[in-house]
């Protein structure tokens, strides 16, 4: 199912592996091709008040690849993806240290507007959250309307985004209905359409399938498959099979640490770390 020809070229030679794996105490991580790194965290630490929940995460996110983030509940997966588009700081008392580079520019630099970052790095939340006061159509356009972006042909854009989210056939006759009149799975795909309508460069999905039935889950996975032709995707999941099916790269988090990050097949078949193996085989978490 997964198209392995498209897998990122990861270099094996230590000489090439650069700064990311220089520190032997950290998980060994081959450095992906330099130009293809879309985002990169450097010593990223996240706090809620005085409690540190992410411990110096260094993780490159490769362009036009799907990166899965797995790990036990409470290990900081949501916090991690939320720090990639500056949604972490929305929580009162939450703060970040370290850097997150988007196209080699720190999104936490003082002169960077978080609003612009979020336009480039879109997000689909764990729980579907369509706007209840807006119709299905207006939900798709919400990002553009709320940002006062002029659209020359809104109907075409709505159709395109809904088709991308594999929702068009189900809702094309009821576009005027409220966004919350849809089922949970349809709402989740509506939220994806809403994020896609903005054409972000990176798409973050926090457990997009946790509320979905197997059929809707399969559709979302298909969608992720298609989207990776043009988007860089980070997907948090609790479902190992899902990570194995959709992701080229997999990062395993444990108690706020990045334990292992590698090609998905490597992580699942030959994990370097004991903790990864234990988690994958279901011995804890």
């Amino acid at each position: 199912m997964t198209d392995r020809t498209n897998v990122v070229r990861l270099r094996d030679t230590a000489a090439d592996s650069g700064e990311l794996s220089r520190d032997a105490s950290r998980p060994r991580l081959e450095k992906p091709d330099a130009q293809s790194v879309k985002m990169r965290t450097v010593g990223l630490r996240a706090f809620y008040g005085d409690v540190q929940v992410l411990k110096a995460i260094d993780l490159p996110i490769v362009e036009r690849q799907v990166t899965a983030v797995i790990g036990p509940s409470g290990c900081g997966k949501s916090t991690f993806v939320r720090s990639l588009n500056r949604m972490h700081e929305v929580v009162p008392g939450a703060r970040i240290e370290g850097q997150v580079l988007l196209d080699e520019r720190d999104i936490y630099a003082r002169d960077v507007d978080p609003v612009r970052v979020r336009r480039r790095v879109g997000m689909v939340f764990q729980k579907p959250n369509p706007f209840p006061t807006l119709s299905i159509r207006d939900n798709v356009l919400a990002g553009l309307v709320l940002n006062r972006v002029r659209v020359s042909d809104p109907d075409a854009l709505v159709e395109k985004a809904l088709r991308q989210a594999a929702l068009w056939d189900e809702v094309k006759d009821v576009l005027a209905r409220s966004g919350t009149s849809l089922s949970g799975g349809q709402q989740q795909r509506l939220c994806m359409a809403r994020a896609l309508a903005l054409e972000p460069e990176v798409l973050l999905m926090d457990e997009p399938c946790s509320a979905l039935d197997p059929i809707a889950t399969a559709r979302v996975e298909e969608l992720i498959h298609e989207l990776r032709q043009s988007y860089t995707i980070v997907v948090v999941t609790h479902n190992m099979q899902q990570a194995a099916r959709v992701a080229n790269l997999t990062a395993f988090f444990y108690m706020g640490e990045l334990v292992e990050y590698d090609r998905t097949d490597t992580v699942f078949t030959r994990p370097k770390e004991r903790r990864t193996e234990d988690y994958i085989t279901g011995r804890f978490g």
């Binding site: 929305v90 979020r118 939340f125 959250n129 709320l146 939220c191 809403r194």
Partner: peptide, 22 residues
């Protein structure tokens, strides 16, 4: 629900507009 504000902010909407319009 706070999730609606997050939805708006996640779409790159400025905070004040998220408050008023959402």
């Amino acid at each position: 629900p706070e999730s609606l504000r997050e939805a708006a902010l996640g779409l790159g909407v400025p905070k004040w507009r998220a408050t008023l319009r959402v």
